[in-house]
């Protein structure tokens, strides 16, 4: 049994050696098994098998098996290699696993955006923003984002109508600016086809960080007396986003982000007498947890625009 195994291995080794000698330096998947080549008749004048050569034993490889094909191809290629060039030349190599289309590692990302509030029916906080991210791995980045709200905010008609119709005031706030330190992680990436024709790469990311917002209450309970100055609030943010690459350095993105902080709202009570003029009575007793869910739409530019793959394909 052991001898039979050794003989089988030796047979495979012989076939392999023969194949290697005839084909030369081939790489994986460079082998061709086209029907044309297999069916090519022997060259004219080729020597037929000498009479008396040992015929194949019954049950042995007679050319129908894979080994037979390989041997036959190797032999035929030896005879036709110089005579007829291959009909098709491949100018690119095909790899089992393609390289990532756009590397982020060690690149700086600059992302201008426009954002708007999606969860507050009383007041909207649209903002122009810009983010800078440095990718220290291909999936992890650290960065800053800056948002400017000043002059862009607007109170909805709902607030006014509620006040007039029900004599109730909903305290609201105004934002001026925000700045945040963020970490970005890319757990998902892939590609999609448009009309089954054009292929685009995309990634989805998680973002989160801490920073500050400069805000102030909008006086709605006693606007004749109360005036508020902007103050800094510590804010945390978390979000998810999707980025679609248009080229290796340019992408568009959409992001949903929640900026959370403790807000000092206007007091719903108006003090009587001299106390009405006292700013200490203008704020609510305890701060309120505020959540500003924001949609960002923008584009991203990666610098340097080009990069080199460090690892071979």
């Amino acid at each position: 049994m052991k001898r039979a195994s050794i003989a089988l291995l030796a047979g495979f080794a012989t076939v392999g050696l023969t194949q290697t000698m005839f084909v030369g330096s081939v790489a994986a998947q460079d082998m061709t098994f086209s029907a044309d080549e297999v069916d090519t008749p022997p060259a004219e004048g080729a020597t037929p098998p000498a009479e008396g050569d040992t015929p194949p034993a019954e049950g042995a490889d007679n050319g129908d098996s894979l080994l037979g094909d390989l041997r036959q191809e190797g032999t035929q290629e030896a005879t036709t290699r110089d005579a007829a060039p291959r009909r098709t030349e491949a100018s690119e190599e095909i790899f089992a696993i393609q390289q990532v289309y756009a590397l982020r590692n060690s690149r700086l990302e600059v992302s201008p955006s426009w954002s708007f509030t999606v969860n507050d029916p009383y007041v909207s906080h649209p903002a122009a923003g810009i983010a800078l991210n440095y990718w220290f791995t291909n999936v992890l980045a650290v960065g800053l984002n800056f948002l400017w709200y000043g002059g862009l905010e607007n109170e909805s008609d709902l607030n006014f109508n509620v006040r007039r119709s029900t004599r109730l005031a909903v305290p609201i706030t105004e934002y001026q600016l925000g700045a945040h330190l963020n970490f970005t992680y890319v757990p998902l990436y892939g590609k999609f086809a448009m009309f089954n024709e054009y292929i685009f790469q995309w990634d989805a990311y998680l973002v989160g960080g801490v920073g500050m917002l400069r805000t102030r209450p909008v006086p709605v309970v006693d606007p004749e007396i109360r005036q508020f100055d902007f103050g800094l609030r510590v804010a945390f943010n978390v979000g998810i986003g999707i980025r679609v690459f248009v080229s290796r350095w340019f992408a568009v993105f959409a992001e949903l982000r929640n900026y959370m902080y403790l807000e000092k709202l206007e007091s719903l009570n108006v003090a009587l007498g001299a106390g009405r003029q006292d700013p200490a009575t203008w704020f609510a007793d305890s701060p309120s947890f505020t959540s500003n869910v924001t949609a960002h739409i923008g584009f991203t530019m990666f610098f340097p625009p080009s990069f080199e793959y460090k690892l071979p394909r």
Partner: peptide, 24 residues
């Protein structure tokens, strides 16, 4: 928001999808 998106697409260099040029 639409203008930002349009600007993004308009500013994009004239590349075809992903610059993959297939030959052979």
């Amino acid at each position: 928001a639409a203008a930002v998106a349009a600007l993004a697409l308009g500013y994009a260099p004239s590349v075809s999808a992903q610059e993959v040029q297939i030959t052979g």
